[in-house]
Design a protein around this nucleic acid. Structure first.
Lengths: 152, 152
DNA sequence: TCAATAATGAAAATGAATTGCAATTTCATT
DNA sequence: AATGAAATTGCAATTCATTTTCATTATTGA
């Protein structure tokens, strides 16, 4: 069994391995991202960070997210819309997404039964599955209410 | 109950509704795409069609696929890689994808149990699901064999 | 046939993702 | 503290798929 390391440990392991140096800007971005614990496009994250640290550039945000993705602290999702998003990856945990097409809200869920069935399906086709993506698109409770109200 | 119309009926309904005219080039593209019954990026389809009808341009292929998507005769999928793909949509049928990361092979599958579980999950969150996407990434039987061979 | 309007091709525009490079910063070692 | 090799940063430029523009050509109903 391999001891799981914390996000920051993972990061410094990665830094050691690739001979990276630390920097306030990058630390700030990473910190902000992990604490916010939401889904961001590069641009969204950049826009929020710009408020607090205008001296941080888009490229740096882009590269920080890329770095996080490389050391598995962030995952990339491509939902229906244009730009792809990054989300913090939590240890031990895998999840899928419910996406509201009206307000854009993203809900994460887990379902072991579905996971198991996926593996079954794959096995049936001789596939070895290393990753999967499940996205449910629709309308969230709130938006359904609003829509109902509008129709009346 | 609404009578289901055939692909070509759907197409001409759509044409009627939007006052479109017909053209040999577009017909050729659509015909080729529906008969091939595979997943294509715009470019892949263009490249194949170029062989048979060099006078058809990329734009026209692009617009034909867009048109098919508009009248639900084609669906768009975005797998891990850069370009998005179009696939023919068959009536009554929904399917998900197994994608081999090594050779790019795409296998379609259906699984009612998974579909049902998805609906359950959504209901639990108050969501109304209108569409979903399930993709399993991994390695197909053939590629696994090759890899095994290489290691020996 | 004619006029109205859609389809087409080529090129340009768009938009996100990515990179090259010069300037700046980090940090282990003087 | 000073140094220098190496990483980081910002900006601009590039890439690449996608989408649009616009001038020309083709289709269709009157």
């Amino acid at each position: 069994m391999h001891k799981q390391s914390s996000p920051l440990e993972k990061l410094s392991e990665h830094k050691a391995r690739f001979g990276l140096k630390s920097s306030n800007k990058r630390s700030f971005i990473i910190d902000y991202f992990l604490k916010a614990d939401r889904h961001f496009t590069v641009e969204e994250l950049y826009d929020e960070i710009k408020q607090k640290k205008p001296e941080i550039s888009y490229s740096t945000v882009y590269r920080a997210l890329k770095l996080l993705a490389e050391c598995k602290l962030a995952g990339q999702c491509t939902f229906g819309d244009s730009a792809s998003r990054y989300e913090p990856i939590h240890q031990y945990e895998h999840h899928d997404h419910l996406i509201c097409r009206r307000c854009g809200r993203i809900i994460e869920f887990e379902n072991d039964k579905i996971e198991r069935l996926q593996k079954d399906v794959a096995r049936r086709y001789g596939f070895h599955v290393s990753a999967h993506k499940l996205e449910l698109y629709g309308m969230c409770r709130k938006c359904r209410k609003v829509q109902k109200g509008q129709r009346q």
